[in-house]
Design a protein around this nucleic acid. Structure first.
Lengths: 122, 122
DNA sequence: CCTGAACCTGACGTCGACGTGAGATACGAG
DNA sequence: CTCGTATCTCACGTCGACGTCAGGTTCAGG
């Protein structure tokens, strides 16, 4: 039986754990063919898909949201509801960026103060 | 007994739950005086402090990290280790902002594509 | 004094994205 | 055929910032 790519290989290539890949399948984020023996066999495109999933997770989307949006992200076709959801998520990310930027600025000021104080003390 | 501010009032003013305030105290993020009857009594500065804690949490810092950094954030005095930690956290936030920005761009493109497709279909 | 609202201290529940065994099966090399 | 490694399917554990329920206490107004 010629396997395209087994789970361990996909894990190494994508940088996520074997467990995570099985979890993605459980959540219907990722499909796999099976060998006659029952082992998972992934096509090459699976690599991109895993990276996309990771990106969306990193952006704070839940697996439920990702599973809803993945079709249109990969096909470019969306229902109005999906489009709404896409916009909601994008705006949520934008707001999060605002928060983080504020926090970063705040920490930056603290660092400046501390550095100034330390220099003054020398 | 004249209370400055009780926990419910602080909760309403800061927008966090009563439970959260107790949790902050448990984690040594926030102190409180007590009335003879054992009820928490907060000074006015507690409001700022709670907001600061929220900001740091929102930035993805853990309560452990926050408890380590709060002194120098509020006093401006830091040990070299604290300064290192501050810089680490700021850089982590910066990296996170990068990730989110990439994800936002990605979603933005998807939205454009979808919108274009829908318009084309009309 | 009485009452209802606010507060108290445990202590267990939650949720999401996996980690981590346990025990069994499949695969590839020799 | 055998051995070692990779994979398989349950299924419980984790972690952090609280939510929530239970059972008792304190406070302020009338």
């Amino acid at each position: 039986m010629t396997c395209v790519m087994r789970i361990g290989q996909l894990a190494r290539r994508s940088g996520v754990s074997v467990r995570a890949l099985r979890y993605y399948e459980e959540q219907r984020l990722l499909e796999s063919a099976r060998t006659p023996g029952g082992q998972r066999d992934y096509p090459d495109e699976a690599l991109e898909r895993v990276q996309l999933i990771q990106d969306l997770f990193a952006a704070g989307l839940s697996s439920r949201t990702v599973v809803e949006l993945l079709p249109c992200v990969s096909t470019g076709v969306a229902t109005p509801a999906m489009l709404d959801q896409l916009i909601i998520e994008r705006d949520r990310i934008a707001a999060r960026i605002q928060d983080l930027t504020r926090a970063k600025t705040k920490l930056g000021r603290v660092i400046e103060n501390v550095t100034a104080a330390n220099v003054a003390q020398d």
